[in-house]
């Protein structure tokens, strides 16, 4: 019900934050995505779930316009073609980020402002204020002047989210933000995601952590090159669909009403 009222408030044109239709993409002739079709409502916390190599990162790269699909298209807030870079935030996988680079946390968050600055323009006082505000909302304001590599794993993920917030993005694509974190850090990050959803942001979170998605997310897309299923986690997290998604990649145990997952 809450979701419906959000949709109405934002107007019919923006009911959907993201649509993908008949998307095919791949590398060197090898398909990574096969006929991917789904949509995400605005103001929704969605999990993109699948095993390694299922095309999660490729899908995010296609949405961002970093990888050209073979066929099909994506629409961000109703407009096709090149996405509006400002409304689309992104956090790459942690392994892709150079944590030893000599930049402070504030430097990294300020990079979120760059797409709004033209060439040759430097960040202004206003940009710095927005970056600091973004750091406050991920509770890293005290660490703004630390080197990014000095933060803990969970703090680093929150810093990347702050960068997307500084960009004032409305749709956030997060590539494996939960992986490699301990339970407390995962819990903190998910609490942050829920707070952002309440502010009206839409989040698409690539993950292979099913318990987090089952417990806290509105929506799940099960991906293994094609969309095995999409809908509420309680509807799509069935033994049959999960086995079809993960195949031999994991061990599935179902006890009463909950599904427990171990990577096999």
């Amino acid at each position: 019900m809450v979701k419906e009222s959000t949709t109405l408030r934002r107007g019919a044109g923006e009911a959907l934050a993201l649509e993908a239709r008949g998307l095919w993409a791949g590398y060197d002739g090898q398909p990574a995505l096969e006929d991917v079709t789904f949509s995400i409502e605005t103001g929704c916390l969605a999990g993109l779930v699948g095993p390694n190599g299922s095309g999660k990162s490729t899908l995010l790269r296609v949405i961002l316009g970093l990888h050209r699909p073979w066929r099909g298209d994506t629409r961000v807030f109703g407009s096709s073609g090149r996405p509006d870079r400002r409304r689309l935030g992104y956090t790459p996988q942690s392994e892709q980020v150079d944590w030893s680079f000599p930049v402070t946390v504030l430097d990294v968050v300020l990079m979120g402002r760059y797409s709004r600055l033209g060439p040759l323009r430097r960040p202004t006082k206003v940009d710095r204020e927005i970056a600091r505000h973004a750091l406050e909302s991920v509770r890293l304001a005290d660490l703004a002047d630390r080197r990014i590599g000095e933060l803990s794993g969970g703090q680093q993920r929150r810093a990347l989210v702050a960068r997307a917030l500084a960009q004032e993005a409305d749709l956030l694509l997060l590539d494996e933000p939960l992986s490699g974190l301990d339970a407390t850090a995962q819990h903190d990050l998910i609490a942050l995601f829920e707070g952002l959803r309440q502010e009206g942001k839409t989040l698409l979170v690539a993950t292979h952590d099913l318990s987090c998605v089952a417990a806290d997310f509105d929506h799940a897309i099960l991906l293994n090159r094609n969309v095995v299923a999409f809908g509420r986690p309680s509807d799509v997290f069935t033994e049959e669909l999960l086995n079809a998604t993960f195949q031999r990649h994991l061990l599935l145990v179902r006890l009463q009403d909950r599904t427990y997952v171990g990577h096999g």
Binding site: R61, L64, G65, Q96, D107, M111, Y114, L120, R163
Partner: peptide, 22 residues
């Protein structure tokens, strides 16, 4: 000096820089 912002962003995080339209 003129392109410091761009060089920094591309050197630090090329995929995010590309996603930002640089």
């Amino acid at each position: 000096v003129l392109f410091y912002k761009e060089i920094l962003f591309v050197a630090y995080d090329p995929s995010m820089a590309a996603a930002s339209g640089l």
